[in-house]
C-alpha cells in the first residue's frame, strides 16, 4: 500500500503531513517534516534510514509518546492531536505494543513477570498462560524466572519483544529489535513478528538502519533528514536468505 492509499476500516496508522519541529537556539530543527504514511492491519513495515533521519521520532509519534507539531496522526481512526492525556494512555494500553532498543525491562520483575506486565496493562485475563506461551515463542521458557540482570542482552531483548506481543495489541512498534541479537536469534524474532502480522493481523513497524532486515518487510519506507524519501512495497525475502 502506498501513501496515496485511501483510509479504510483496515487502516491502523494514518499520518497526514505530520511533522515534529523543535525550536533550538533560535532556529527550528525539523526532526520530522511533512510525513504522509498509512499502514493497514497485517502489514509488516520497515522504516529505514541513517542516524538522525527521524526514524525514532516517527516511531514516537505513532506510539503516542509524542505529539506532532504539524499535521495529524491517527491510530485506529483516533486523532492523537485531538486526544486527551487519558485517551493517549488508553490508546497505548490497548492498541500499541512497544519494543525498545534498550529493552527497558523492569529490573525488579522476572522475565515472566515482565512479560505478564504487558498483558496486565492491556487488561488480558489469561495473562500468565499467554506470557508463558509468548516467552516460549521467543525461546526463553527456561529463563522465565530469571531477573533481567541474569539475562544476556539478547535474552533481555527477547523478553522485551515478548512483553510487547503478549498484549495482543494491533500495532507493534519496534526500535532496532535485533540490534542486540545474534543472527540466528534475530531471524527467529523477525519470523515471530511476521507471524504476528499473519495470525493476529497486527501491523508491525520496525525501525532499523539494517537493510538486510528490511528485506523481510512487506513495505519499506526510507527516511532521510526527517522526510520520507521512498515508500515502496516489497516482496518479502525468505528468512533463510538473510545474512548480516
Amino acid at each position: 500500500m502506498t501513501q496515496e492509499a485511501v483510509e479504510d476500516d483496515q487502516t491502523l496508522i494514518d499520518l497526514r503531513d505530520a511533522g515534529r519541529h523543535y525550536e533550538i537556539g533560535g532556529g527550528t530543527l525539523k526532526a520530522l517534516d511533512q510525513v504522509d504514511l498509512t499502514v493497514r492491519a497485517g502489514e509488516f513495515v520497515v522504516i529505514l534510514g541513517p542516524s538522525g533521519s527521524g526514524k525514532t521520532t516517527l516511531l514516537n509519534l505513532i506510539g503516542a509518546l509524542d505529539t506532532p507539531t504539524e499535521g495529524t496522526v491517527r491510530i485506529g481512526g483516533q486523532d492523537l492531536t485531538e486526544a486527551s492525556r487519558a485517551e493517549l494512555f488508553a490508546l497505548r494500553r490497548h492498541r500499541i505494543g512497544f519494543i525498545f532498543q534498550s529493552f527497558n525491562l523492569f529490573p525488579g520483575l522476572t522475565a515472566l513477570e515482565n512479560v505478564q506486565f504487558g498483558g496486565n496493562v492491556a487488561g488480558r485475563s489469561d495473562v500468565r498462560e499467554a506470557a508463558i506461551e509468548v516467552l516460549g515463542q521467543v525461546g526463553l521458557s527456561d529463563r522465565a524466572d530469571h531477573f533481567p540482570h541474569e539475562l544476556s542482552g539478547g535474552e533481555q531483548q527477547r523478553v522485551a519483544i515478548a512483553r510487547a506481543l503478549v498484549a495482543g495489541n494491533p500495532v507493534v512498534l519496534a526500535d532496532e529489535p535485533t540490534g542486540e541479537l545474534d543472527f540466528h536469534t534475530g531471524v527467529q524474532i523477525l519470523e515471530l513478528l511476521r507471524e504476528v502480522t499473519q495470525t493476529a493481523g497486527a501491523a508491525v513497524l520496525i525501525v532499523t538502519h539494517n537493510r538486510q532486515i528490511a528485506r523481510v518487510a512487506d513495505r519499506i519506507v526510507e527516511l532521510s533528514s526527517g522526510r520520507i524519501q521512498s515508500d515502496r512495497e516489497n516482496e518479502p525475502a525468505d528468512m533463510a536468505d538473510l545474512h548480516w
Partner: peptide
C-alpha cells in the same frame, strides 16, 4: 516505560 505502555 510504564507510560509508554499506557499505564496512567
Amino acid at each position: 516505560t510504564m507510560f509508554a505502555y499506557g499505564v496512567p
